[in-house]
Design a protein around this nucleic acid. Structure first.
Lengths: 111, 111
DNA sequence: TTTTTATTCAACCAAATGGTTATTAACTTA
DNA sequence: TAAGTTAATAACCATTTGGTTGAATAAAAA
């Protein structure tokens, strides 16, 4: 995998298990065992997936007793969103025009 | 790499060479040789990168004389954007609050 | 027709990926 | 202290990735 940060983030996201883990963490912190629960996979494999997410900065690790609860850090997702920005107009062109038209109408008739 | 579509797309994007190619194609169609120009890499390697982008549906291939011009298809990027949607509020929360506050002010003092 | 240009394909290789099992470490509980 | 739980690490393996070179294909140009 390429070593630049954005590539590391996108690569981390390019796996349904890891995206599933992020989805779970969007609802709040979770332990490794909790994160592993939906998957038919060894804890070692889960641990590796978590390491990939961590290297990408997408999750952070805490420590409570024998647990290492993970929490989501959305910052790298923001970077992905910003990268998309340059292309967004390409699929939103039609909507943009409508949006501007609506703003134009509002400027005329509404306060 | 995982076989689901979104994973295929994100994986295709997780490489600076391939993102560079997309950036070039955002300015319009380009031949393989044109796309290869910035990279110190064999044509065969370029061809493989293009195949990855094509499998992800990010580019389409034309045919003109001996050239196979590629063009960008932004549709899969839209899918990435839609996946991000669920997380967007997490990094935009503060801005949202500010935005709502400004709208509130505007509703009061401005037309 | 021969040669050149543009591109792909085939075979190969080293390194990375994604899984496994077995072991180790840290902490809790009996 | 001993046993159980949680999680990471080490060693291993098969497959994939991302590059190479060399040959093949297709069209254009000479």
């Amino acid at each position: 995998m390429a070593s630049d940060h954005l590539s590391t983030v996108l690569n981390a996201l390019a796996d349904p298990t890891r995206r599933g883990m992020l989805a779970r963490l969007a609802n709040g912190e979770a332990t490794v065992t909790e994160l592993a629960e939906p998957y038919d996979m060894s804890m070692a494999a889960i641990s590796k997936h978590l390491k990939v997410l961590e290297r990408a900065g997408l999750i952070e690790q805490g420590r409570e007793a024998q647990y290492r609860p993970r929490k989501l850090n959305p910052e790298p997702l923001k970077e992905v969103d910003q990268w998309l920005e340059d292309y967004r107009q390409m699929w939103e062109a039609r909507f943009d025009r409508l949006d501007h038209y609506l703003r134009h109408l509002q400027g005329k008739s509404d306060g």
